[in-house]
Design a protein around this nucleic acid. Structure first.
Lengths: 147, 147
DNA sequence: CTGCACCTTCAAGGCGACTTGAAGTCAAGG
DNA sequence: CCTTGACTTCAAGTCGCCTTGAAGGTGCAG
């Protein structure tokens, strides 16, 4: 496949693919008369990159991930990366869920302004799951909550 | 409080606080002889900003959130923002959990390389929760999984 | 009065992840 | 032969979110 075909298949711009190659997250493609040619495995690789990115990995980390994957140090390196990343990803999930709770209950929150909303009290690490509780425990004055 | 005291209390740099003011996410502080003075409500406000940011809101959105909060259109505006943001935040959580599943089971994945890992098969929208399932259903050859 | 910590503004710099633009190359088709 | 379209490189630009640096003001202690 040419770079254009890969881009269409992966939903990226050609510039992004060249950029990925330039920073080493994609291997250097084989050239035919100066032009890059790709096999279907490239699409899989791009999906890995996409998932990693969406999960909060930088392209640098993703490169490390894929590099570890390619050579023999494979799973060891991978586990190290996992160990570093797991707490981060857990914190991300926790915060996201806290905000989600707040968004879903925002209309019923009863707080007159965000500045007094119990949801934003000083954050104790790993207070996840308690957001709803704190909301329920709040005054519930409901100035104009129709829906 | 001076800007320096606020910064220490909030764990930010003074430059960040001035920047927040410059883009309107913090209101313009009262001045004493040209210097900014803040009340304790500012700390609360900064916590709101922090939580919003961590949940994936841009500073622009956070400004809108706080603006809506301040004037009388309050809850209406807020609900609109919530409606726009909820799907995004759900997607974020879903992806993060997918990656989390993969990280926790990475050592036992059985895939020889990421490029053949079932986790990264073409993504059907909202395939969340099935990550573990797909992993379990995979070959499980375990080349060198010691821990 | 001097020194010092802390404050001010404004312009510029930096990072991550790309995109855009200019200028050039190559293979195929009319 | 010449154009067309997809490719090439390289430099510079963009966006969000700040940080850094220069040059200067303020207030209090010694």
């Amino acid at each position: 496949m040419t770079i254009g075909e890969v881009a269409r298949a992966a939903g990226l711009r050609t510039s992004a693919i060249r950029y990925y190659e330039s920073i080493g997250v994609l291997p250097e493609a084989e050239r035919h008369a100066g032009q890059r040619r790709y096999g279907p495995d490239t699409l899989q690789r791009l999906r890995v990159i996409e998932v990693a990115k969406q999960a909060g990995f930088s392209l640098g980390e993703t490169r490390a991930l894929l590099a570890a994957d390619a050579d023999s140090s494979a799973h060891a390196e991978l586990r190290a990366l996992a160990a570093r990343k797991l707490p981060e990803i857990d914190a991300l999930i926790e915060r996201a869920q806290r905000m989600r709770d707040w968004l879903t209950t925002a209309s019923d929150c009863g707080c007159e302004t965000l500045d007094v909303c119990a949801l934003f009290e000083p954050v104790t690490p790993s207070a996840a799951g308690s957001a709803r509780t704190r909301l329920r425990a709040a005054p519930m004055r409901r100035p104009g909550a129709s829906s």
